[in-house]
Amino acid sequence: MRNLASLLFAGGLAFLLMAIAALLPFGHPPVLAGGAILEQAADQVGAANIVTAVVLGYRGLDTLGEITILFAAAAGLGLVLGRRRAGAPRDPDAGPVLRTGAALMFPLLVLVGFHIILHGHLTPGGGFQGGVILAAAFFLPLLARPGTPVDHPGLSLVEGTAGAVFIVTGLVALLTGGEFLQPLLGTGTLGTLFSAGTLPILYLALGLKVGAELAGLLARLADAETDT
């Protein structure tokens, strides 16, 4: 009975969404804000990747709120899982393939992560994507050897510093007469690495913060005791 009601609900939802979708002119969206942003972003922000211009230039405050949510989730996860007891059993080390692979992949992943973060204003990618790759790089050794100690205070330090850099950059913009988190330092030449003003700095801070946060979060999840 309950399953039947659930299926009816899911079917009704699908019908409702399809009905709404059928009303929309597919492939011809009414581009209002997006069109204006496409036209003005090059002059106002100077980032070749317009998604970056939107994420950091036009709604930087929103992004700050977003990393606050991520921080709250990571803090809540640490709180819920609690501290690991000293003598709790761990999984054994992985086989030689995963261990060698992890050692080989680590520098490559760090390099790719930083590349994606630093080119976030030019090519697809940015702080969030690169940060996730950095977190994966630091989580991989933990998968290969579950006993590897994790430097949680160090991760917190990186995370806190990066968050502070993000907010201070915004406050500097506020002090120099602009809006909070407004891009500074001019727009530079479109498409070069040192363009779009403070956007690369913001994205670097964002990437390090997301990377440190996710690495700590994954380490805590992997480290959680379940067999008590």
């Binding site: 977003e66 990393i67 949510i69 991520l70 709250a72 989730a73 990571a74 809540g76 996860l77 819920v80 969030f128 996730v132 997301v210 996710l214 979060l217 999840l221």
Partner: peptide
Amino acid sequence: VIGVGIQAL
């Protein structure tokens, strides 16, 4: 990003 946070929690 928020989805990742929710899933982790």
